[in-house]
Design a protein around this nucleic acid. Structure first.
Lengths: 348, 348
DNA sequence: GCCTCGATAGAAAGCGCTTTCCATCGGCGA
DNA sequence: TCGCCGATGGAAAGCGCTTTCTATCGAGGC
């Protein structure tokens, strides 16, 4: 049979209560007793029973990190940063670290809810939702309701790169300045002299897509330049590849393409090259996010740097309660234009 | 207060036992009763208490997936595939899915053990270890011991891309044919006429590194060609970049570089380009793994395709018990040479 | 020298669920 | 008609831990 706390207590000749106190360290125990207990733990190779502990204490040391797609570096970087800052954190219940668990929603609202329920069931200590959300009101209501329940049950809720919904007051939120970043990026293209700019946007019904598009349009409007063609698609290379054909078809005079993110930009580049168009000689290309590979692309990508690592770290700290939530529950994360080799002056 | 199973029972005018049976569906319950219970669950918005359930049932629906680095697509792809196949799986305890949780070890043996203990504590249903392991005997012994304990406690153990240790009989293992893949890759370079081949290898003390290097050497030996310089480093772009300088210094006549994986190969390419060397005109470059981006690299990377997605899916199924473990507990996963644009005949 | 207080340790009551017996009940074969 | 069986549902005993409420023991304060 498995070793239980009672076995340890018997071996150390103390009561179970004392063993529990030694393990959780939140009650004074005489040094000699503590040592005796720890020795017994070691000798018996005792491992705390998590469920029992969570049941009695009405909380667990699980922290859920929900991402749209683990295989996407955007989430990979943030999740990994969050997980580190959670691991390093203070000693939770059960004499140790929290278990940060990454859950892949695939961007599907249903899976998101499923995971939230699962985490609620586990009495998770905290939940971090990464990435923008769908704007469908029904989905929004369902998720918000679920989050409210989680918060009510004592689970900390952190949004990272996801705008808070009104009335979502009990969640700390870190939001990227997508609008501002996109605006600066388009301004950069305008300054270079581009007048026909295509936009290979992300999925149509997501907050992130909308915000980036709004920034782009704001720049155009301010400069009095007409908006070029826009095509929506997922956040993958294929989408950029396909979008390029359509953008070019809709405006053959295109001299620049702004992509939903760096991955999409890669697809755009591939499609342009395949048509014999040089970058940035014939067409300039810009990405977004500044994912690790974008500096290695040929030419290196002009993009908008998002401090994903810091944001992830901060989200982790907020989840641990190591960092105080920002005033108003919402902190803006800056987005900085990074000009590299893929953008230049248009010909002529 | 939170709604408990007893509340549901009261509302449905049945005993708690019956509610539990409805929820777990492993005992006959009359249709009318079942409906009444489900209605009550709905009306009260009841959420099962996971810890309590796990405690009573002595097992949980957690499946741990340990990876070296989530931000690395190699793991991202496998983990995401595993998580999907686990999610889709049969109904576990607690009337639903299993919770696949991805844990980032950062390649550190300590963190790996920490996570295994955490999972053991949670009475995880299964654990999947992805990626090669350190070859340090002490670490190996510790991990093997821990895995044995997990298996003993009823947790399924699956190794994916990690060679089993002797005596690790109760773990199902999926191993990539790193040796064969590496061998075929080097053979390809030899056939093209390369005689001076440098190797930008992975970390020195890991199984994966050793196997790939062995395959590489086997090809050279069989062809009677002298081994070129080898440099070890981590699996990142920087490593490839740095290694290139050293390889070139050690053999200025180098006409080809084999990299530890595709990411490293990208660094190698960057370094070569910076020195004004063309690819594959002056130097051929080869990667390994066939990560998603390698087809988009310029030039596209010659590499060894590893079916990461399928391997991850299979690992997930093994963890769920949906798929029978392979005979002998070990299945080889093929590695296929993919020739693209980054390798060609050496000049002259 | 007696009482109080601080520091420790133990007793025991759950935490919310699962599951092993049992009890009940209607129907059917003899 | 009686007894037995299959199908359901209830009672209750834990699962292994946490935590309040007490108990004990010295050390000072008066």
């Amino acid at each position: 049979m498995t070793v239980t706390l009672a076995d340890v207590a018997a071996r150390a000749r103390v009561s179970p209560a004392t063993v529990s106190r030694v393990l959780n360290g939140n009650y004074p125990v005489a040094e000699s007793t503590r040592e005796r207990v720890l020795r017994a733990v070691d000798e018996l190779d005792y491992v705390l029973n998590g469920p029992a502990s969570s049941l009695a204490a009405a909380t667990s040391d699980l922290v859920g990190v929900l991402v749209h797609d683990i295989a996407d570096p955007f989430f990979g970087v943030m999740a990994s940063a969050a997980q580190s800052s959670i691991g390093e954190g203070g000693s939770g219940r059960g004499g140790g670290e929290k278990l940060a668990v990454v859950c892949n929603t695939g961007g599907s609202p249903e899976r998101e809810l499923t995971y939230l329920t699962l985490l609620q069931r586990q009495r998770a200590a905290a939940v971090i939702l990464m990435g923008g959300s769908l704007e469908d009101p029904e989905h929004l209501a369902a998720t918000t309701g679920k989050l409210a329940k989680l918060a009510e049950a004592g689970t900390r809720v952190v949004l990272c790169g996801r705008p808070p919904v009104t009335g979502d007051a009990n969640a700390a939120a870190l939001v990227f300045d997508n609008r501002g970043g996109a605006r600066r990026l388009t301004e950069h293209l305008l300054e270079l002299g581009h007048r026909h700019i295509g936009y290979a946007a992300g999925p149509a019904d997501r907050t992130t897509t909308r915000h980036r598009l709004e920034g782009h349009r704001a720049a155009l409007t301010a400069a009095g330049i007409a908006e070029g063609p826009t095509v929506h698609g997922p956040y993958d290379r294929q989408a950029g590849y396909r979008a390029t054909a359509e953008l070019l078809a809709r405006d053959p005079d295109l001299t620049a393409v702004v992509a939903a993110n760096d991955t999409v930009a890669l697809g755009v580049c591939a499609a342009l090259r395949e048509r014999g168009l040089s970058i940035p000689g014939d067409v300039s290309v810009a990405g977004f996010d500044d994912l690790p590979f974008s500096v290695d692309a040929v030419p290196s990508l002009t993009t908008v740097h998002l401090p994903l690592h810091e944001a992830g770290t901060r989200a982790g700290r907020l989840a641990m309660g190591t960092e105080d939530p920002p005033a108003g529950g919402l902190a803006r994360v800056p987005a900085e234009l990074v000009v590299r080799g893929s953008t230049g002056r248009p010909r002529g």
